[in-house]
Every structure is written in C-alpha cells, then in structure tokens.
C-alpha cells in the first residue's frame, strides 16, 4: 500500500473542499489524489491490491449523515447509514426489494461497516482490473485493451459492455435503487444537486475509465427512495448460498390491477456494467396482461443484444430465467 495521509472531517462543506479533483469518479486513483473513505470496505481492498494509491484519505464516515427519515412517500437515507442499519429500519420492513438487496449482500460484518453511499459507488470485482500487474485493462490504462475478454470471465457483465470492457457493477442495493427510481443527493463545492441513481454510473461501453459522474469535491449525502404502491422483490442467484456477489439478480416492482400490469419496474444485477434498469423488458410488460408467456417475452427482449464472451455465454439465459422467476413470484401469476 502506498503511503497516504489520513484526515477526518466533521462537516459536509469541509469534505467537499478537501477533494479538488475528479478522482472519485475515475476508475483509478493515484498519489496526487485526495479521495473520501467511509466504511472502507471497497477502498481498502483496492488499496491493498495496489490498484488504488491515493495520497490522502478524507474520512467522511462520521459526517452527520446517519439518519433515515420517511418524508411523505419518500425514504431519505443519509449516505453514512450502514447497510445493516438500513436493512433493519422499520421503514424498509415492507419494501422487500430494498431490504433483500441489502440482506442478501456481503456478510453481517461487512453490512455493519459499509455505508449505503459507499455501496452505490462500489467498484467492479473484475480480477483483471484488480490486479495492477495485468497490463491490458481499459479501466486502469485506457487504450490498453481488456484481458477479461480473452480470459476468465464467468462473473462479468453482458449488458452495457463491449469488447473494450466487460466489468460488472456488483452492487445489489444499486439495482434495487434504480428499479425504485431512487435519486441521489450530491453536495459539491458549488452547492448541491439531485440526480437519479440511474444517471450516477457510467457504462463500460461509454467510458470504462470513468465509474460515475461525480464532479470534483462532490459527495453523496443522501439517497431519496420513493416507496412505491406496488409489490416488490429481489432475487439473487449465486453459486454459494450466502456471502457472494450475484451471478444474476432481478429486482421487480409491480402492481397488477385486474390482471394488468398497471405499474412495473425491473432491474437486473450481475449482468450490467452499471446497475441495470431493464427498460426494454418494461416496455413489453407495461399495461399488458400479466402471464408467464409475457414475462418470457419481456426477459428475452431485455437480453436480446447481450454481449457475451465464452465465460459469460450462460448469463443471458440465466438472467432471463431469473427475471421470469421474480416477475412470477412478485405478481403471483401462475400461468
């Protein structure tokens, strides 16, 4: 690990002022960069791997951003709230998609450490990205190529990717958030702005070297999560029964009225370079009579243009099945 300076800040203004470059948005950080650390569960792992070597860490874990409030039909969650605290908060007790996306992630210890702000900004698990000795990585060294394309890619993405980078965004929570139309409040040197979580991340097929759209000094301060008038659910498919990232996952928000999908939102995890909102599937589903055949059609539409390599060729099929299963279970459609 490269030597670094550590400071802790007590207010949001000081945090924003401390970070003067766009380092937080880049896939890699170097000795000239000052970046935030909160729970540290991604940051330290990447620093230990030698992928990140920031010169200064600004600890934002103790900022007064640890409250969960219900404002009308919107949950406002401070960015420093831990995954564990949000998962056990009474406000999410009936919001299955959110609660399960938290409880099916990581482990109890990690959920006690990791903040929700850090979670949505977590970085890819691509082992080629995470090993600095690998020379071909368009995230770390733009223009150098992608070792994963020819390499071992079972856990990689098939949507929002191309031959330049197939890194997956591994957050479960972020998939639930994009499906719930959640927004993220940012605070920067020039004040605040609020953007949809769906606009927070940068697709690998757009720019693999940039992970998110945060400007210099911008800090995630809150998540705004609309509570839908609908049934919801999150299904995570993985080799191991627990403590593993998703091979595939599906977040579903749906309200069926007289057999018709009056409201539907769908997200996919484990398959996208960003938390994937399945808009093509939604187009097929919206306003239609819920049926297993319709779900199959919607899932097929979403995965139709999947980009696969030999290691990921099973993923579109597994993702389709995951989505169909979860649509079925949330809508309780039987045929």
């Amino acid at each position: 690990m490269h030597p670094f300076t550590y400071t802790r800040v007590d207010d949001v203004e000081a945090a924003s002022a401390a970070v003067t470059t766009d380092a937080v948005s880049r896939a890699v950080q170097g000795p000239d960069d000052t970046v935030f650390i909160a729970g540290g569960t991604t940051q330290l792992d990447l620093m230990r791997d030698g992928v990140w070597s920031p010169g200064t860490l600004v600890d934002v874990s103790r900022l007064p951003l640890a409250d969960v409030e219900l404002d009308e039909d919107t949950l406002v969650v401070g960015a420093a709230v831990t995954m564990a605290d949000l998962a056990r908060h009474e406000a999410v007790a009936d919001l299955d998609v959110l609660r399960d996306s938290l409880l099916l992630a990581a482990s109890p210890q990690l959920r006690s450490m990791a903040t929700v702000g850090g979670n949505v900004l977590q970085r890819t698990r691509c082992r080629y990205f995470r090993d600095p000795e690998v020379t071909q990585c368009n995230k770390r060294r733009p223009g150098s190529g992608c070792a994963a394309i020819e390499g071992t890619a079972r856990t990689h993405a098939v949507l929002g990717v191309d031959a330049g980078c197939i890194a997956v965004h591994a957050s479960d929570l972020a998939v639930a958030l994009v499906t719930l139309d959640a927004r993220v409040r940012l605070h920067g040197p020039d004040g605040g702005r609020t953007i949809p979580v769906a606009d927070l991340h940068v697709r690998a097929d757009v720019d693999p070297a940039r992970d998110n759209v945060l400007a210099a000094g911008e800090l995630v301060t809150h998540l705004e999560i609309p509570v839908p008038d609908a049934r919801t659910g999150y299904l995570k498919v993985r080799d191991r029964a627990s403590y593993e990232f998703a091979l595939t996952s599906a977040a579903v928000v749906a309200r069926v009225e007289d057999g018709i999908l009056a409201h539907v939102a769908v997200g996919l995890g484990g398959v996208g370079s960003v938390p994937w909102r399945a808009t093509r599937a939604e187009e097929v589903l919206r306003g239609q009579r819920a049926s297993l055949a319709l779900f199959e059609q919607a899932a097929a539409a979403e995965l139709a243009d999947a980009f696969t390599v030999p290691g990921t060729d099973f993923k579109p099929e597994l993702a389709r099945r995951t989505l169909v299963r979860q649509l079925r279970d949330v809508t309780e459609v039987t045929a």
Binding site: I37, G40, D45, Q109, L110, M113
Partner: peptide
C-alpha cells in the same frame, strides 16, 4: 486481509466488523 473470511471479526462499539478492512486511524 481481503475482507472475505471473517477471521478478524472484532466488535467496534458493540458491532461486529472486520478489523482487516478497518484502518487503525478510523478506530479513533
């Protein structure tokens, strides 16, 4: 030392956390 096995679990202010993924400085 990767936050992936739990052998280093300790309690910080009563919560179970991974001490390998916690900077000593953060335990202030």
């Amino acid at each position: 030392d990767q936050g992936a096995c739990g052998a280093c679990t300790v309690h910080v202010d009563g919560r179970r956390v991974l001490s390998c993924l916690t900077l000593a400085a953060q335990a202030e």
